[in-house]
Design a protein around this nucleic acid. Structure first.
Lengths: 123, 123
DNA sequence: GCTACCTCTGACGTTAGTGTCAGGTTTCTA
DNA sequence: TAGAAACCTGACACTAACGTCAGAGGTAGC
């Protein structure tokens, strides 16, 4: 498929896909005229990249661990890095859960305050 | 307390604290000479701001919802925004949990591959 | 073969949250 | 009271992941 279709199927912009290629994260075949052509599995790859980005992992780190993620084989130092990212993700989840509690707290009391007309500061 | 102490106690840089003030997120008393002085509760406020930033909420949004977070009173449209942020946080948590599973998967198979010498692609 | 749409490269712009530096004032400690 | 350390404003720098634009060429339906 061409870049536009990949963009549409993954929900990622064409610009972002070219950027991934620039960073070495996503390869493409080229037609004679220079247009990019992607295999089916590029869809999964793009989703994986997006997930890792969302986890706050930089493109340089993703680049380093991608072969390992794809092939399942990795040198010890790469595995160490993966473990490091793992614990950072765990930490992020914990922090977000705490934020969620705070937001809930605020939403409940603000809603109550509005409904009753009586301000009621969150605990 | 002065800005240096607040920075140390919150783990946030002096520069960042001044930036929060610039954005209207964090007020300070000023001494005659112009130095900032913070109350004790500024510590909690800074941590809250950091949490919201970590949840991907922009300073403009934080500014809008901060009075509500602090006082527990909010207009309906602010409460709506809070609910919007809440669901975005929930989504982030879910995505991070999925990422965690993927990382675990990779770590396990890469470790096994290294230990046995037999590459074993992740499922 | 015309038209509309897609794609190419290259380059500069954007946003957010700082880092850093300069040049000057204030506060603390010995 | 001197010197060190902390603080002030203002300004420019930086990073990351793109957005956007220009100008040119490629592709597909009729």
């Amino acid at each position: 498929m061409r870049i536009g279709e990949l963009a549409e199927r993954t929900g990622v912009s064409v610009r972002a896909l070219r950027y991934y290629e620039e960073q070495g994260l996503l390869a493409a075949q080229r037609s004679e005229s220079g247009q990019r052509h992607y295999e089916e599995h590029a869809v999964g790859r793009v989703r994986l990249i997006q997930q890792l980005y969302a986890a706050g992992i930089s493109s340089a780190s993703i680049l380093e661990m991608l072969p390992c993620v794809v092939t399942g084989v990795g040198a010890p130092h790469v595995i160490d890095k993966l473990r490091g990212h793992r614990s950072s993700v765990v930490k992020q989840i914990e922090e977000l859960q705490e934020t969620l509690l705070q937001l809930d707290n605020v939403i409940v009391s603000a809603t109550a305050a509005y409904e009753t007309g009586r301000p009621c500061p969150p605990s």
